[in-house]
């Protein structure tokens, strides 16, 4: 009973729901954000319907047709072992989405738990977690990822693991920051005074309020995650053949760029467009939520 009083009192100011509505409203006004959403929509559709969209199997080789230029038979041409590049780009969307969702999902999970714990408990726990996150933030991200991938052996799973290891502190920081703000807010103090259990406060108040800044951060990160994974694959620490990963495709295609431009170009465009989609969306979402911009004329 007493809780409902608390909630109604804060609904207007801090409800994640109203915040979301505002974000969606804001996004609809921005043409760039709409463009971003469309791109991501297409990507997801491509990943889901890959078997229906791809004209060939992404791994079927035809040595006699290797390095064929784009034609009606192979719209994006073929690669150095005669696989259809269009089909590989289409199936590659699955790999990209998998990398993005797993990395961002795991980092959000780990980061939020650690961040909220740090912020809520404070004291030495906070100190410890934050110092560890400092270390990871001072690390040149790509180099750490390379070291992990080199150490564990190159594979997509190890790339994902490496990226989770370098990315979690960002979310830990965001989550902790939110908790610290919330801790000072009256209703938390009130909740404490009223003897609401810590756990309850945590689940009902702290977590929901952390979610929106974290989602924004995640949207912004998705593009970077994808690009980092592609870079790792490019250097040779990522996806293994015959996985149709876009970065790996560019890496293999780079020696062919001079004579067989299609090999590296289409996967390159796929990365560019997809990352751009994530970035446009993330950018717009951030603008809408940026408190300093709200006041602007």
């Amino acid at each position: 009973m007493h809780l409902s009083i608390l909630e109604s009192g804060t609904e207007e100011k801090r409800s994640p729901n109203s915040e979301w509505r505002r974000v969606v409203r804001g996004l609809r006004k921005s043409p760039l954000a709409v463009l971003g959403s469309v791109i991501i929509g297409i990507l997801i559709a491509m990943a889901i319907f890959a078997p229906f969209l791809a004209p060939y199997s992404p791994t079927k080789m035809r040595l006699s047709e290797r390095l064929s230029p784009p034609s009606s038979r192979h719209i994006f041409g073929t690669d150095d072992v005669g696989r259809d590049i269009l089909s590989r780009v289409i199936y590659g969307s699955r790999i990209s989405l998998r990398i993005c969702t797993v990395v961002v999902g795991l980092t959000i999970g780990i980061g939020t738990i650690l961040g909220v714990t740090a912020g809520y408990l404070g004291g030495w726990v906070d100190e410890l977690i934050m110092r560890i996150s400092d270390v990871f933030l001072a690390f040149p991200a790509l180099i750490l990822a390379m070291a992990i991938a080199a150490a564990l052996g190159p594979s997509l799973d190890n790339v994902i693991l490496a990226m989770v290891v370098i990315w979690w502190p960002r979310y830990a920081r965001v989550a902790r920051g939110q908790v610290l703000v919330l801790r000072e807010i009256d209703y938390m103090v009130a909740a404490k005074a009223l003897g609401v259990s810590g756990c309850r406060t945590f689940i009902h108040h702290i977590l929901p309020n952390c979610i929106s800044p974290i989602i924004i951060q995640a949207t912004l990160d998705l593009g970077e995650v994808l690009l980092t994974a592609a870079t790792l694959s490019f250097i040779g620490f990522g996806a293994q053949p015959p996985t149709p990963e876009w970065g790996a495709m560019i890496s293999l295609g780079r020696n062919y760029l001079r004579d067989n431009w299609w090999y590296a170009t289409f996967p390159g465009l796929a990365i560019l467009v997809t990352v751009m989609g994530f970035n446009l969306l993330g950018d717009a979402a951030r603008d809408v939520l940026d408190p300093r911009l709200r006041r602007s004329p």
């Binding site: 043409p31 760039l32 593009g223 690009l227 592609a230 870079t231 490019f234 970065g247 560019i250 890496s251 780079r254 760029l257 590296a264 390159g268 990365i271 560019l272 467009v273 990352v275 751009m276 994530f278 970035n279 446009l280 950018d283």
Partner: peptide, 21 residues
């Protein structure tokens, strides 16, 4: 919109690919 689109393309571009081109 143009200046933002232009800079977003930059941040979305795989460096190694742009360099080669």
């Amino acid at each position: 919109q143009l200046s933002r689109l232009g800079s977003v393309i930059g941040v979305s571009m795989p460096i190694f690919w742009l360099g080669l081109l």
